[in-house]
Design a protein around this nucleic acid. Sequence first.
DNA 1: TCCTTTTATACTCGAAGTGAGTATATCCGG
DNA 2: CCGGATATACTCACTTCGAGTATAAAAGGA
Lengths: 300, 300
Amino acid sequence: MTIGLAHAELIAVLSAVTGDEPRVMTVRSGDALPSGPFELGHRSLQAGLREWVGDQTGHPLGYLEQLYTFADRDRTHEDAGERTISISYLGLVREQAAPGAGKPGWHGWYEYFPWEDHRGGRPEILAGITGRMQDWVAAEPARREHRQRRVDFAFGLDGAAWNEDLGLQRYELMYEAGLVTEAGSPSAKNFGRSMFADHRRILATGIARLRAKIKYRPVVFELMPESFTLSQLQRTVEALAGLTLHKPNFRRLIDQQELIEETGEATSETGGRPAKLFRYRHAVLEERALSGSKLPLSRN
Amino acid sequence: MTIGLAHAELIAVLSAVTGDEPRVMTVRSGDALPSGPFELGHRSLQAGLREWVGDQTGHPLGYLEQLYTFADRDRTHEDAGERTISISYLGLVREQAAPGAGKPGWHGWYEYFPWEDHRGGRPEILAGITGRMQDWVAAEPARREHRQRRVDFAFGLDGAAWNEDLGLQRYELMYEAGLVTEAGSPSAKNFGRSMFADHRRILATGIARLRAKIKYRPVVFELMPESFTLSQLQRTVEALAGLTLHKPNFRRLIDQQELIEETGEATSETGGRPAKLFRYRHAVLEERALSGSKLPLSRN
DNA sequence: TCCTTTTATACTCGAAGTGAGTATATCCGG
DNA sequence: CCGGATATACTCACTTCGAGTATAAAAGGA
C-alpha cells in the first residue's frame, strides 16, 4: 500500500436555465451527477473535464470553475484500501445548446431542493422542515442555543431574512438532523429527491457557489442566448436565486454596470409591448470586477 | 498503469501577522510551502491537514479552508507515470502562537511579492514590472489590445485603480510574460523571491483569497490576539490588504458590524493617548454574513 | 509647569447608492 | 377603440460611504 496513492475522479455540476427553470445534468435518470476517472494525458484538470464533457454530452461548455475536492472516509474505493478523491467542477451551459425540458439527463434543481425556490413565496415544505429542525435543536440541551442560532440564521427564522446564498448550510444542517436519506440513519425522513452517495451535497455546493457568484461576476450571461430581453435576463437570475426581484431596480442595476448593449431589434413574443433585444458586451467583461453589487430584492 | 490512480499531496498556506507584517510558514529556508502526502486513516482532508500541521509546527490552527486542487502535467510524479494531485489549503494562525520575525520558518509575504505592498505608496519595483509588461503587450500585435486591457486592469494603469484582490491575476500575467523564474524560460528576469515548483503561485492564490475574504467575513480576528486596540486591528487589515485605510471610516465600519466589544481595559503602550482594548464577540460571528462591506480606502 | 507631539476618539457633511413606488408607452385581441 | 398585458421611464426618501475636521488624553522636553 503506497502512501499518498488514491483514485482520482472528476464530478461535474453542469447547469443550464431553460424555460425559467434551472437544471442540472444528471446520469442514472437523475440519481447521480456525471463523473468519471481522471485519466492521464490531459494537460490539466480543467482541460480534462472540458474534453470529457464534450464527449459525453455533445454540448459546448462555456464557463467552468473548480468547486471543491472531497475525500471523506466513506468515499473509500470499494475494492481496495485506497481512497477516492473527487474533484468537483461547476460548469455553465447556454440555454440554446441545452436539451428541452422533457429530454432525459437534465433535471430541475428544485426537484432535489424544493425548499430553495422562493419565487412563489415561502414554500410550504419549509414548515415541515423547520418543524423537524426544531426537534433536533431541542434534542440536545447542551448545544441547544448554538443549534438554534444556526437554524434561525440558515432558514430565516426569528427575524432573520431568508438568504438564498445559504443553500449549502441548509442542506448540511438537514443532513446533521437526519432529514435527508443520504445521512444513512434508518429513521431518516427525506425532503426533496435524494441522490447517489454525496452527489446531492455536491449539487448544493454548486448551487450555492453560483448564487453567490452572480452577484459580483457577470456569469449569468453564460446561460443566456446571444440576444435576450431584460425580462428574460431578470427571470434567469430569479430562477437561479430562487427569488423574485424588483423590476425597475434590476434594470437600473444592469445598465449602470454597462455590461449589455441594444441589438437594435425587438421582439413582440412576450405578449405586451415589444421588448428591446440586448446582447452581452464580450469585450468588456473579461476583466470586470463588479464590486459589491447586491441583488435588488422585492418584498414578496 | 491504472486509470485514475494518482499521488495525493496536501500543501498548506499558513499565515500569521506579526509586527504589522503578514507572514507565511515555509520549509527549506523559505523556498517551499510545507507539504506532505495525504495518508489514509484521516477522517477527511481537513482533519488530515489539521493533525499534520499540529505535528509539524506545534501551533494550533484556527481557521482552515480549502484553496484549490492542482494537477497539471508538469506536476507529474518523477519516478512513475502517475500524476501528483496537490490539494492546497489556507490556514490562519494567531499572532501570539506564531514565532517572532527572526525565527526561521516564517517569511514575509512581500519578500515574494514586493509589488503587492502599497502601504507606503506605489512600490518603485512596479515601474520596472509594468515597463516589461508593456514589452510583452507589444510583442504580439494580434493580441495587443486584449493584453493591454488585462495589464491595465490588473496593475491599475490607464485610469484604473489598484485593486488589491487581483494578486493572483498579476502573478499569472507576470508568469505569462516571463517575469518570474518559475516560468522556466532561460531569459526570464525575476521579480521578488521565487519558490520551488508552483509554490509561489499557490501562495498568491492564498493571499488573493484572504484579501477577498476579509471584506465579507470576519476572519481577521483569527489572526488577532485575545484583546487588541482598534489601531492594531486596522494595521493588521492594512498588512493583509497591502493598503492604508481611512481611520475614522474604518472605525465606523467595525462598530456598525457589532463584531467586537470593549474589555473595559486600556493600554498606553502605543505612545499617545491610551487606547481601549477590545475583544471579538465569538458568540455572534459564527453565522455572520457581512454583506458587501468594502474596505474604507484612503486616497494616498 | 506648560507646551508640543503623538495617538485615540468623536462628529459633520455632501455625494452616491439603494429600496420602493408611480407614471407612461406600445403591443395584442376582442 | 378599449382593456389587458408587458415594457420602459421617472421620482423620492433613506442609508451608506468617502472625506475631512475637531476634541481628548497620555508622554516628554523646555
